[in-house]
Design a protein around this nucleic acid. Structure first.
Lengths: 208, 208
DNA sequence: CATCTATGTTATTCGCTCTAACATTGGTCG
DNA sequence: CGACCAATGTTAGAGCGAATAACATAGATG
């Protein structure tokens, strides 16, 4: 997280316990497929006692928040990577962003639960907002470019982006719960997003 | 749930404890805004001891499943009610269904967490699928009617319905997390859905 | 090198889920 | 009609995990 190199001090003091705990928690979440891991297991995995984590995190929710921050960072990284291979302002670029979103979210269902689960438990701090926005504004910029290229300068790129985000987000959730398989066994969620996006943007072009 | 009348037996045996617990749990979830209620509180609220619930539910997850079933039932009821006031096969009918979905989901965020949270904890039984489908097939029927009216008989109503569901579902989640307020303070989620739907269906009409 | 603070440990408390063993009662069948 | 028994309730308590308190160690700093 902080970029410090991983070392093996093995002394009384761990040296990088905070990050070790975040990684341990993320692993436990990934392995169990649930957010209900035991604090003591994360501690054990990091090689410390059950009380040690509380020097770095006020409580379990705080550790989960750190994992959440990590997840948002990873997501925005992947979205960022994807835009590099796409022509600026093309429909393909917009589709690729949505597909990256779906790929990340369905590939890490536990992170999805963290990111979109219970709202109240989470202190929606600046970091989260910033990271979340960084991914979102990538989409906004792409949509703005598309508007210009399509001669629809008057269009509100922000509103359009929210709607496109909703499409990708909605399809992710539906796919993750197996509803795509259930109702459209022959379809896959990535092509659903592609055709949805094309249909929608065609509607925008037509001024609807 | 079972339709039995609510009575006041007040004896050693409760008489309708199973339903009383479901209601108590739903209330606690609603009040606390979280799924982490204590089993003993639900029991207390129903007027029984802490062990009594386990005669009716194997564990807490089973009680949550019952609440989930109730939530799906309530959702499909609301969607059903909405179609009655709409012209069959109109865009308005489709929009109204989506808005009912959003209204239910954002109005009961805790139910949303139940319905769309952790997948593994939940035994996805037939009842859930049936109820979930009953709401979904309401949409499918409406979309089919719209296709006919719009002279687009060849269109796959099922695929279209999944995409429309995704729009409503995605907007719900985004709105619930305050992102609509954050990014589009002057907008509201219901009109976003309306314009999204219109744009999308215009794209479909154009054959995109 | 003395000390101070960050970070770790062990021991413990507390709350909650779930089970065990026992109690009550309403329905059923001789 | 009355004896039984299955369903449904009760109290007691085991066991787990979160969080805290009191104590220990060591790495940094003057």
């Amino acid at each position: 997280m902080t970029g410090k190199p991983k070392v093996q001090p093995r002394g009384y003091h761990h040296g990088d316990l905070r990050n070790a705990l975040i990684i341990a928690a993320a692993e436990l979440i990934e392995e169990s497929g649930s957010l209900d891991f035991a604090m003591i297991d994360a501690a054990r995995r990091a090689g410390v006692s059950s009380a040690a984590p509380y020097r770095h995190f006020r409580d379990k929710a705080a550790l989960l928040d750190a994992v959440l921050e990590f997840a948002f960072f990873a997501l925005s990284q992947e979205m960022d990577a994807v835009t590099r291979n796409q022509e600026r302002g093309s429909i393909e670029a917009i589709v690729a962003l949505g597909q990256a979103y779906i790929r990340f979210v369905t590939g890490h269902p536990q992170f999805y639960d963290l990111m979109w689960g219970d709202r109240d438990k989470r202190f929606v701090d600046d970091v989260e907002n910033e990271l979340r926005s960084s991914g979102f504004y990538l989409l906004v910029a792409t949509v703005e470019a598309w508007c210009q290229r399509s001669g629809r300068d008057g269009e509100d790129a922000l509103t359009l982006s929210i709607k496109l985000w909703a499409m990708a987000h909605g399809l992710s959730g539906i796919a993750m719960h197996g509803h795509v398989e259930r109702f459209l066994p022959q379809a896959d969620v990535y092509s659903l997003l592609e055709s949805s996006t094309q249909t929608f943007l065609e509607g925008v072009r037509r001024g609807a």
